[in-house]
């Protein structure tokens, strides 16, 4: 088997619900992140050191980052955990495709190379954006769809739909394309060229996670902002 991003199959059934390969991979990723988080915060110290220090610094940094990004601090505080989770999940998923064996061991490939995964993430973002808008402005939030005039409704709707769609397609396209190119390179030249490409992939995987998170934050900020 040799399936870079081309894997599609049901691993087993949980009652009537089919469980795909990527779902199991996601479980592994969740377990990994969860164990690291557990280890980091198992024994909280007043003066942090080691793993706790690194993990704390990461979380605090994301708080600062989102606060800077979103202007309103209470919004940033409220949605920073969600956005951090996006970031962690996506970056670990992306990197899981760079471990030897991804796309070769049957059933193992990065979840973000599957467009069902990225669609789910983009839908969560879209849903969160609308919820955040309503939570901040109440029913006045609907007003921004018809501003500055009702004539703009289709344009505003198109923009609103384009947001999650761009998130979904960019993440999937990048990771899937990366996997494809990697497979192709490995097919052509088994050693040197792929290693160059993988160096690039290390960077690209991180950038895609950051971009997804930043854009989600920006959409939430726009929905909860002053309105236009």
């Amino acid at each position: 088997m040799f399936t870079f991003g081309m894997l599609d199959g049901v691993l087993f059934h949980l009652g009537p619900i089919p469980v795909d390969h990527i779902v199991v991979t996601q479980w592994a990723i969740i377990a990994l992140i969860g164990i690291v988080a557990f280890m980091a915060t198992r024994n909280m110290q007043m003066v942090p050191r080691g793993l706790q220090n690194a993990f704390e610094a990461l979380i605090v940094w994301t708080y600062d980052f989102f606060t800077q990004l979103m202007d309103k601090e209470h919004i940033a505080k409220k949605y920073a955990p969600l956005l951090s989770t996006f970031f962690l999940f996506i970056i670990v998923s992306n990197y899981s495709g760079l471990i030897p064996g991804a796309g070769q061991i049957p059933g193992y490939q990065p979840p973000t190379a599957n467009w069902n995964t990225t669609l789910a993430l983009a839908l969560i973002t879209a849903f969160t954006v609308q919820v955040a808008g309503f939570a901040e402005h109440g029913l006045h939030y609907l007003g921004h769809f018809v501003s500055p005039s009702p004539l703009m409704l289709p344009l505003n709707l198109l923009e609103e739909i384009a947001h999650p769609l761009s998130l979904f397609l960019r993440l999937f396209g990048n990771i899937f394309g990366e996997e494809m190119i990697l497979a192709f390179m490995l097919f052509l030249a088994p050693f040197f060229v792929p290693s160059l490409l993988m160096g690039l992939s290390v960077l690209l995987a991180a950038i895609q996670a950051v971009v997804f998170t930043i854009l989600s934050a920006n959409y939430i900020a726009t929905a909860t902002g002053e309105g236009h």
Partner: peptide
């Protein structure tokens, strides 16, 4: 990023 991707996506 938002400007670039939104224009293209729209």
């Amino acid at each position: 990023i938002n400007l670039a991707t939104s224009v293209a996506a729209v």
